[in-house]
Amino acid sequence: MNTTTRLALGAALLLLATGSLAQTDTTDDAESLRMTALEALITAPPARAMPIVDKVLSGNHSAKLKERALFILSQMETPESQSRLLAFANDSQGELQTEAIRMIGIGGDKDALASLGEIYRGGNADVRDAVLEAYLIADDTAAVFNIAANTQDEEEFSEAVTMLGAMGANAELRELRNRAGLSESLIEALAISGDPESINELVDIYRNAETDEIRNSALEGLMIAGHDEGLLELYRGAGSAADKRQILQYLVMMDSEAVWDLIDNAFEGTQ
C-alpha cells in the first residue's frame, strides 16, 4: 500500500470514527433529554402527565425510560395511574412487570397493594420476589404474614419469613412460631429482626432444642445477630467438649473479643 492510499484510508477511518462519536453524543443527549422530560412530569398535573406517560409505556422506548415512566405513575396517586400500574404488574412480562410491582410498593396505594396477593399466587419466582419487595417497601407486614401463614411450600415460607425478619416484624414472627413451631428459617428471621428479646431467646432455643438443625440454627442466629454474650453464656454452660468447640468456632467466625477472654481465662485455669 503506497503512502497516499494509507493516508486516504487513515483519513477515511478518522472521519468514520469522529462521525460515529458525534452520532453517539447526539443519541446520548437525546436520550438524556427524554429522561429528564419524563422525570419533570412528576411535577406536572396528573391529567397532563398521564397521557404522555401512557404513551411512553406503550411505545417503542428503552426499558430504562419505561421503568422511569412506571415510577412517575406510582407517584401520581390517582385511581387511573394506580389501575394502569396494576395492569402492567398483571399483564406485562420480565423486568417491566417486576418493576411495576415494585412501583406499587413505592406508591403505597392500599388497594393496589392488596391486588398483589393474586399476582404473587400466579407468578414465577421473580414475580414472587418482586411482590415481597413491594410489601417490604410499603412496610405491609400483614401481607407478608399472610403469605407465610398460608403457604405449604417450604421455600416460600422461608422467603416470607426472612422478609418479616428484615421488616422487624417481631409480633408476626412470634405468631408464626406459635402456629407452626420453630424452624431454621424462623430462627434466622428472629436473628435478622434485631429484636433484643428475640435474640436473647435464641440462647434458650439452643438449650431446649430437640434437633441438631434447630440447635445449629440458634448458633447461626446468635452469630448473625452479633450476640457474642449469648454464645459466651452457652460456651460456659456447654456439657461436652464437642459443644464447646462448636460454640468457640462461631465466636471465632464472629471475630469476637470474647474469644480472647476465653483464651486468657483458659491460661489462668478458670474455664
Binding site: L33, R34, T36, A37, L38, A40, L41, I42, T43, A44, P45, R48, A49, I52, K55, V56, G59, H61
Partner: peptide
C-alpha cells in the same frame, strides 16, 4: 423543563410530546 411541566400550557406539553416521541 421542570418549570414547563408545572405549567398548564398546551405549548409546553406539546414540547414534551415532541421530545419524547
Amino acid at each position: 423543563l421542570f418549570g414547563l411541566a408545572q405549567s398548564d400550557s398546551d405549548t409546553a406539553f406539546e414540547y414534551f410530546d415532541q421530545i419524547l416521541f
